[in-house]
Amino acid sequence: MILDPARPDFWPIPQTPYEDDALVFCRAWLKGQQTFTLYTSGSTGTPKPIQLTRAQMRSSAHLTGQTLGLQAGDTSLVCLNIRYVAGIMMLVRGLELGLPMTIIEPSGNPLLNLDPATDHFAFTAFVPLQLQTILESNNPAYQVDKLPILNGMKAILVGGAATSPALERALQVITAPVYATYGMTETVSHIALRRLNGPNTSELFTALTGAELGTDERGCLHITSAATNFERVQTNDVVDLVDSSTKGNRQFRLLGRADRVINSGGVKVQPEQVEQVIQNVITTVDQFSTISGIRLFVTGLPDERLGQRVVVFTEQLPINSQQWMAVQEAVWEKLGPYAVPKELITVTQFSETPTGKIDQKATVAQIR
């Protein structure tokens, strides 16, 4: 379905319930509705309703347009779930910035039925799994090439989950700017971006103009901006806030979530850092060098001696003793002895949240 914000009288008749939902929201926006109720993704608990104002959503949309250089008439591909903030904000950006929108119901490969010769877009946003699937489809073995669609864009956003080291290496074939996003429903989508490809690749997120950042006593980020209605939003994300004389405190390195910290022998271990080391080790082994990424997570299980021991959960991934030893040595070298995983647990399939993220608590419960 294609919607041109400049020509609402010519919008098509919806063909599916999903298209109907998109049209209902867009028409409500054009009629001036002032408040909207959205739901969090539920990745760290039960999804909860959050009410956002039109002013917050407009501010976020225009700031994104300004940051990425989007202009009226630029076309956008909307392929994120519009029942959550990331997808809804793609609609708001289209309506507010005058971007004609091609709206596709979310799928693993949103480009599958598009033609590089005729389908051109300036802007889109993916979850990591979508981008992984697209790049895999560009493998010569599949005889499919959608890269021209990506390379013709002004900006590509990737959010909703962390990008794996394997994916970040693979997406270097894309010449258009690709950005990881940082944000949540409470901040009305992203408030910071991190360049993933090209000469400006960075490990640091840079906050959008006007976002004020700080940390609490746990080292967790808090955010104040027009998108938060100038109220402080306190997160559980542990960050390394960079003090730059040129950028102020507008850059940060995301370390992980405070509620995931493992206390092993009195030493706090951030599991996200362990996961990244493991991903780097595994994807350098030939038979695992696939851009689809390895589904795993690190957590703590009760231990009589340590309090909690570091363990790795994988999904149908056989690792032999030599590879497991390489993982343990790499973690020891980079993060120290207390971060070294003590056990590898393989399950048939990870439990997932409604938005497709790994439900770690439910997955751990499978073995108890």
Rank of each mutant, 00 (worst) to 15 (best):
P177T: 06
I174M: 04
A141I: 09
Q276I: 12
V340T: 14
F126K: 08
Y18E: 02
V178Q: 04
A258R: 06
F288W: 14
N197T: 13
R58S: 06
Q15A: 14
N280F: 00
L52N: 02
L68H: 02
Q172F: 05
H222P: 00
V311C: 13
V158Q: 05
D115S: 14
W332L: 15
A141S: 13
I50H: 11
K154S: 06
E231L: 11
E333H: 13
P128S: 07
G94S: 14
F25C: 00
V347P: 02
K48A: 14
P49R: 04
N139F: 01
A55F: 06
E212L: 12
K247T: 13
A176E: 02
E304H: 11
P12Y: 13
A166Q: 11
D303G: 08
Q308H: 15
N263F: 03
L306V: 01
A330I: 11
Q349F: 03
T163M: 12
Y84G: 01
S289F: 03
L114P: 03
T209R: 13
I104E: 07
A117T: 09
N236G: 01
D115C: 10
A170G: 03
P337A: 05
V274A: 10
L213W: 08
T46A: 12
P148D: 08
G256M: 10
Q172V: 07
Q33T: 15
V178T: 06
R260E: 15
W332S: 07
A330F: 06
L241F: 01
L157S: 10
G65N: 07
L30I: 02
G73I: 11
A326W: 02
V239E: 05
M89A: 11
W29G: 03
E272R: 10
T215G: 00
T67V: 05
L3I: 11
E333N: 14
S321K: 15
T185N: 08
M90P: 00
H190L: 10
A362G: 01
T283F: 06
L63D: 09
R54W: 12
T209I: 04
A155S: 13
N263H: 13
N320T: 12
G159F: 06
E333Q: 15
R257A: 09
G183D: 05
A339G: 04
P337V: 07
T346Q: 15
T346M: 14
I82K: 06
Q251L: 10
T224A: 11
L335Q: 04
L30R: 15
D303C: 15
L68K: 03
K31G: 03
G210T: 09
N151H: 03
V285R: 09
R54D: 04
A207W: 07
N197L: 09
S292L: 13
M184G: 02
P12T: 11
P8D: 09
T228K: 10
V178G: 03
F126D: 05
S43W: 03
V188Y: 03
V298E: 01
L30F: 01
D4A: 07
A365V: 00
